[in-house]
């Protein structure tokens, strides 16, 4: 069991992911079933005004999910997880996932932890997603 305890202000992460690659976007398309060509076909993405392929929002959310499960350790500890998608992520972007604990409460020896989470692009500081999560510890 994970007996780690959290306090308001505790930091989660940072989880610094390797640069997003076009191969990764193809892999994520296959693994997720989201075959929208804006994620895989440069010509198509340019045609619709994106300038080139962009990452799936859900890929960035999955990175933040990894940071959360690294922090919680135990399957089933994560209770709620939500994000808003803000800026587009492109191949070459290095995504940094971070969190900060905003609230803790104890219930029958179980700690319920609320935190704000975000994913930013390391090269230019653009905020790709912001969100919130609740987990038990």
């Amino acid at each position: 069991m994970n007996q780690k305890r959290f306090a308001v202000g505790d930091k989660l992460g940072p989880l610094i992911k390797p640069p997003v690659t076009k191969t990764q976007l193809v892999m994520y398309s296959g693994a997720s079933g989201d075959f929208n060509p804006i994620h895989t076909v440069d010509e198509f993405a340019k045609e619709v005004g994106l300038g080139g392929v962009i990452a799936h929002g859900m890929l960035t959310m999955a990175f933040v999910g990894q940071m959360l499960t690294d922090a919680t350790g135990t399957p089933g500890a994560l209770k709620q997880f939500r994000v808003r998608f803000r800026e587009m992520v492109r191949p070459g972007d290095v995504i940094v996932c971070e969190g900060v604990v905003t609230d803790v409460r104890d219930e029958d020896g179980v700690q319920w932890v609320s935190c704000d989470v975000s994913a930013t692009v390391q090269q230019d500081g653009r905020v790709a997603v912001t969100g919130h999560a609740v987990f038990t510890a």
Binding site: K17, P18, Q24, M27, Y28, G30, A31, S32, L59, A62, F63, G65, Q66, L68, T69, D70, T74, P75, L78, F81
Partner: peptide, 23 residues
Amino acid sequence: AIGDPNPLYRDGTGADGRVVAPP
């Protein structure tokens, strides 16, 4: 695809030995 090396998603090394899905 998401580049998460967590063994829970591969070997089922969790408490009950089953493979768990990421969030």
